[in-house]
Nucleic acid binder design. Sequence first.
DNA 1: CATTTGATGTACT
DNA 2: GTACATCAAATGG
Length: 203
Amino acid sequence: MDGLDGPVLDVAPRLLGAELTSDLGGERVAVRIVEVEAYAGEGQDPASHAHRGRTRRNATMFGPPGLAYVYFTYGMHWCLNVVTSPPGTGAAVLLRAGSVVHGLEAVRRRRARPDDRVPADRDLGRGPARLTAALAVTGEQDGLDLLDGSGPLRLRLAPTSQERVEAGPRVGVGAAPSRPWRFWLADEPAVSAYRAGGRRRTR
DNA sequence: CATTTGATGTACT
DNA sequence: GTACATCAAATGG
């Protein structure tokens, strides 16, 4: 069971402490995953992209464990998930935050603002879209295998973690808001801020 | 500090 | 039309 094909609530916390290496954008960057969220498969989780079955966008979720599911959100950001269930199921784990352990200078360049100001180190990968920006991940990586060691994105699971894991509700999720399916490493400064889901006033 | 809002594409009702 | 697994700037106290 070094694989990722168990129940998503078991697999998600096991991704904490994993190291994700990217050779995208011509530079090597590695992060240590410190925060994740579980999304269950078709018909089991109203907040999951897989809830209503397979579509073009979520097709990768229904592939085998270890694939990268990358989606575009809010018109400008990419988010990266790891598929964790057998083909046809649709469960995945969103990688929500990581701390940079290699390639800090490259990440600072990538995350620099238009006015050249650079976020504090702890903020470089703090949030799902910040994490993909740090790693130079885009939709082109959707469907890549993260576990076979052959591609530009490689995930190496941590040995049995001895760190304290905490759990709470998922961030920004309106449907099924009470499920404590977000997991993070205690005392990690790169864990993102909680924000309740739900509607913003429309205008 | 906390809270609100603009940016911007896609999926769905 | 409206919501959305978001971020950063702007605004208010």
